[in-house]
Amino acid sequence: MSIETEKYILDAVTLTDAQQKMRRRRNIAIALILAALPIMFFASTIIRLGANVADRTF
């Protein structure tokens, strides 16, 4: 079987170290927010349920 060689031209840039660092910081911030949201919703739900959280009569 012959080997096909194809050249792809990608329309892209190479990020500098500073840009990569800033992208990483943005990603970490988004990750922290995404982790905090369900924790806040869970905590608020438990607080609203109050003593009823132990009621498992269903």
Binding site: M1, A12, V13
Partner: peptide, 23 residues
């Protein structure tokens, strides 16, 4: 099939404009 893919990154003005603001 065996395919050797050669990638050539090209910094076009369009690409730079799209990326610079974001990054």
């Amino acid at each position: 099939s065996d395919m050797n893919v050669e990638i050539d990154t090209k910094q076009t003005s369009h690409g730079l404009n799209a990326m610079v603001g974001e990054d």
